[in-house]
Design a protein around this nucleic acid. Structure first.
Lengths: 138, 138
DNA sequence: TTTTTTGCAAAAGGTTTGCAACACG
DNA sequence: CGTGTTGCAAACCTTTTGCAAAAAA
């Protein structure tokens, strides 16, 4: 149960509280986007308040430990901030798969070139939606 | 005040009520993404209930008249469902600009080719975030 | 001990629902 | 006239806030 981010909390200037260590462990263990509800459910043995989870996610995001992603599932999802990547989401079961292909930087340059109103583009969101193999059976 | 979508309601099997006509006019007039609050504000003279606005947006989306877009501004935005395009959003003032460049279909093909889990990709969201010229001054 | 962090309760913000009254076609 | 639509009130769900108690360094 030792996490792969041993000094992430200290480096971020965050005190190493049980709640934070457990949540960090969860991120390391399940390498997939998770939301507050999932964390609360997975850690229900630890009796961590939902508010603490929201605050922990906010501080992790501020510290650059995790990244918030918009999967259009009605709540905010987070995952470890690692290599730049995007996701395919199954519209049926919600399963996600990451991918590293991303041509958006080139698109951004083209946009700026032809844009009358924008000066810089610093971020982007790109999510694909489709059917996974299990759900498209039958 | 005649709208550019004269038969959109009839074609969709929706009754041409005042609320729907006004909301449709708004979409035609302001060719930009708008949300429920904006509609409510713009049409406050018409005394249209918020619930009616939400239901109208839902029925318009179902009918394919409008498209919901995720601008990460805390509420759902909609715009007329026309040519496929995406947006740049100013992280400072929220201004949006549309653009038609989109290389995502090609990316989707590549993803599917290398994906172990997904069979089809049917939609995507792509939004860029940056600073508009007014906001990056100073 | 000092500064964070947590829990609780409550509120906020956007959106949805149930139901009766209303109005389009 | 009949079915679809609206308004009202209330619920819902996720997320945020205020404040005092608890805990990390």
């Amino acid at each position: 149960m030792t996490h792969e981010l041993p000094n992430a909390l200290k480096d971020a200037g965050l005190k190493a509280t049980p709640a934070r260590k457990h949540i960090l462990d969860l991120f390391s263990a399940d390498c997939k986007p998770i939301n507050a509800e999932y964390i609360h459910e997975k850690l229900k043995g630890e009796k961590i308040n939902q508010v603490t989870i929201y605050r922990t996610l906010a501080s992790f995001e501020l510290a650059g430990i995790v990244k918030k992603i918009e999967l259009q599932k009605g709540s905010a999802y987070y995952e470890l901030a690692g290599k730049h990547h995007h996701h395919v989401v199954c519209v049926d079961c919600g399963k996600t798969e990451g991918f590293e292909i991303c041509g958006v930087d080139k698109i951004s340059k083209d946009i700026l070139k032809q844009s009358s109103q924008f000066k810089t583009i610093s971020q982007h969101s790109l999510e694909l939606f489709g059917m996974c193999k299990s759900c498209s059976k039958g």
